[in-house]
């Protein structure tokens, strides 16, 4: 009798219905987007830098060269703008949350695996999409750049998916450096890489040596794709897609390994 009771009191394993599991992923993504949309310190630099640069170099200073220059620079500054939510949204927030104990807390909770990273990824994609839309609006209204709906869609898609390799790179840096050191480190990657891959000034203007090493930078490959989207690059695209996918997978794997080992 006694044993029967003690067996009965051992609680059954708790199963999580599929619907609730999907709900947990959605909640995580929703919270991640909300918290950053409400943080002006995060959103303003991401939105302002590329738009200001584009206004200055892509609209005001190229008046003489006409809409073609504005169209070319729309793609380049679009890529410049897309890199930052990836590097900073992912990298800096991860570094800060590792430092502040939030990541530890989330690891102790029954958060479904990957929900944390997936949430940050979706947030970065949303922010990248907003940057592209903002730049397209400027290009259309002030730069007299006309994009076919298909081109606009392609550029938006390039931006939203193109943020992913930079998320992975940001995540990797975020696992290397804890806390406040990460933003500086990421700036050191972000700004030179943008310049060297011809996002500020078109590559043909840069010294020949820099032109030759440009394919080393992932942002160069994203720029080729963005240029193709606005109809200014007729070369093959598959190689660029593969390079970017490789960069994303490589850094994501490295970062995941470090996260598992060091938390």
């Amino acid at each position: 009798m006694q044993t029967a009771i003690s067996v009965a009191t051992s609680a059954p394993a708790v199963s999580m219905p599929r619907r609730r599991l999907v709900g947990a992923y959605l909640e995580e993504a929703r919270s991640e987007c909300l918290r950053y949309l409400r943080a002006p310190g995060f959103m303003l630099p991401i939105m302002l830098f590329p738009t200001m640069f584009y206004l200055l170099f892509g609209v005001l200073m190229v008046k003489s060269n006409g809409a073609d220059a504005a169209r070319y620079l729309l793609a380049s500054y679009g890529v410049f703008g897309v890199m930052s939510p990836g590097l900073f949204g992912f990298g800096v927030s991860l570094a800060l949350e590792r430092d502040g104990g939030l990541l530890t807390f989330k690891r102790a909770l029954p958060m479904p695996p990957g929900a944390y990273l997936l949430g940050k990824m979706l947030m970065a994609m949303a922010a990248a999409g907003m940057v592209i839309l903002l730049l397209m609006a400027l290009a259309w209204s002030l730069g007299h750049v006309t994009l076919a709906p298909l081109q606009a869609g392609a550029l938006l898609l390039t931006g939203m998916l193109g943020v992913l390799p930079f998320c992975a790179l940001g995540m990797f840096v975020g696992t290397l450096i804890k806390g406040q050191g990460a933003p500086g480190m990421l700036q050191l990657i972000y700004l030179p890489m943008s310049f060297l891959s011809g996002l500020w000034m078109p590559l043909p203007i840069l010294p020949a040596f820099l032109q030759r090493i440009a394919p080393v930078w992932p942002s160069y490959h994203l720029d080729r794709l963005a240029l193709a989207a606005v109809g200014m690059n007729r070369g093959p695209l598959l190689v660029h897609v593969l390079v970017l996918a490789g960069v994303a997978a490589g850094f994501a794997l490295l970062a995941a390994r470090r996260l598992r080992r060091h938390g």
Partner: peptide
């Protein structure tokens, strides 16, 4: 936990809703 910096811009109700979503019941 002893120290956890939760996201400051989220409302308390939102934090609660998020954490509840992790659990079956």
């Amino acid at each position: 936990l002893q120290s956890a910096n939760l996201p400051p811009t989220l409302r308390v109700g939102e934090l609660l809703r998020l954490t509840m979503s992790y659990y079956p019941n």
